[in-house]
Amino acid sequence: MAEILFWLLTALTLMGALMVVFSKNPVHSVLWLILVFFAISGHYIMMNAQFLAIVNLIVYAGAIMVLFLFVIMLMNMNSDTEPQKNKWLKMAGAIAGGSLLLVLVAALKDTDIKTRSLSGAEGNIGLVQELGKVLFTDYVLPFEISSVLFLSAMVGAVVIGKKN
């Protein structure tokens, strides 16, 4: 059962990622990316990271993707008018990505940890109770610093987007 679910989610993830790259229309890319995020959330649930799965859905699929969609529709770019790039340049990009895949797979296929199993539902570090305890004791300084980061990002977005 878990195996079937894993392969289903993996197929969804990789197909959605490929369609993000190959769609001509940016709105279709956004919708495929939302599908990828849902599949990744499924993977998180299968790895017992329930809190991250929900945060992934809320933050990525809910907030960031709506922001993307908003910008695309604001700029009225939902037409597939991307000018054609040089064909050789495109092929060079695809070959570069494929070679990186080849090198990484060749380097990682004989690792020592490859038979370590991840199945099983034991452990509860993925629950919000445990993660909150860790976040507000050991990681409270990075948490506060990230709030400063958010504030500066907000100020930066307003300053950049302001009409002068």
Binding site: L14, M47, L101, T111
Partner: peptide
């Protein structure tokens, strides 16, 4: 599931992202 399945999934996703950027 063995951990290397997840490693290969994430490597494939990363390379698709790189090919898309390029």
């Amino acid at each position: 599931m063995p951990v290397n399945y997840y490693i290969f999934l994430s490597v494939a996703l990363f390379c698709i992202g790189i090919a898309g950027v390029l």
